[in-house]
Design a protein around this nucleic acid. Structure first.
Lengths: 161, 161
DNA sequence: AAAAAAATGAGATAAATTCTCATTTATACT
DNA sequence: AGTATAAATGAGAATTTATCTCATTTTTTT
């Protein structure tokens, strides 16, 4: 048996998040400002979708409310942020990084947790075919889709139980 | 060639809508009141999802704003109303009648129209299997799902063009 | 380093929804 | 049918969520 000691260098991770935040902004020709970096870092802190309230708590008045909304708008405009609504009508937001895979969402009605889930290639392929049929039938041009699943986490969720 | 004359008896349809509204309420042990009947009738007037604003216009001050929201809440509670949010964050609402088939939604980003669409049995079957996998993987109990498709209606839509 | 452009903070404003409570309406019970 | 009781409604106040305004600060350009 081997024992590994893992040193968790928070500074390193923070520096990393700051770096990637800057990169996201410069890659999209958006000026690099402190509020934007802070908001991006807060978004990166969790891989699952978060509410605006979650973000405000993380930012702890380091960014004004109006600025937070404005920055989220900026990030939507450059397509690195996805905004949608949970079943209880709360706006949630998640970062879409270059390497983010196409995914869908699973909602827990008890604790409100939202989990990113991937579905099989077979399923996605059949869905694309269905979408082509719908496009023809309704004379639509469809550019996006999503599958949402609603339920309750039985025991694993950290918020519930 | 034959020519058919179709007489559209509004009174008959109104009476019918009023009757089914009453039936919906009594079937669910909800007291039958005028505002509830009016809201149900407004909901029945269109088969596709409608915004709260649409309803208010149809009701033309015959039902107070607070009552409208309250009645919609009541209808949700007895599971005859489905409420969700369109991509531009507007709340929309649709009646779920006993005979309503399982369906999904198609959103037009230009005119805001929302269309009910059914997908093939083959697709729904595969989706159920995917959902079973997700339930196992995340230890969830999933009780509902929906597929949303986003695009633009190319020329058929009555609101656009 | 200075000038120009852009972003921010603080609070005002707007829109959507919920809440409060006095009055009205519906239901249950003679 | 008529009355008592319970429930629902209307009107507007309050709350919540998001956007807007504009003077000040920060970033970018030169």
């Amino acid at each position: 048996m081997r024992i590994y000691l893992i040193f968790f260098d928070t500074a390193f991770y923070n520096k990393n998040m700051s770096e990637s935040s800057r990169k996201i902004l410069s890659d999209h020709n958006v000026s690099i400002t402190n509020p934007r970096i802070l908001v991006l870092e807060a978004l990166m802190e969790s891989q699952n979708p978060q509410t605006i309230d979650d973000l405000q708590k993380k930012l702890q008045n380091k960014v004004a409310k109006s600025t937070l909304y404005r920055v989220l708008g900026d990030l939507k405009k450059i397509n690195v942020l996805h905004e949608f609504t949970s079943p209880d009508n709360t706006t949630v937001v998640e970062l879409l990084l270059h390497d983010a895979e196409h995914h869908h969402h699973l909602f827990c009605g008890d604790c409100g947790e939202i989990i990113d889930v991937g579905l099989s290639d077979e399923f996605e392929k059949l869905l694309s075919e269905e979408i082509k049929k719908i496009e023809r039938k309704f004379n639509f041009h469809i550019n996006d889709h999503r599958v949402e699943m609603f339920g309750t986490c039985t025991d694993q969720c950290s918020n519930c139980k």
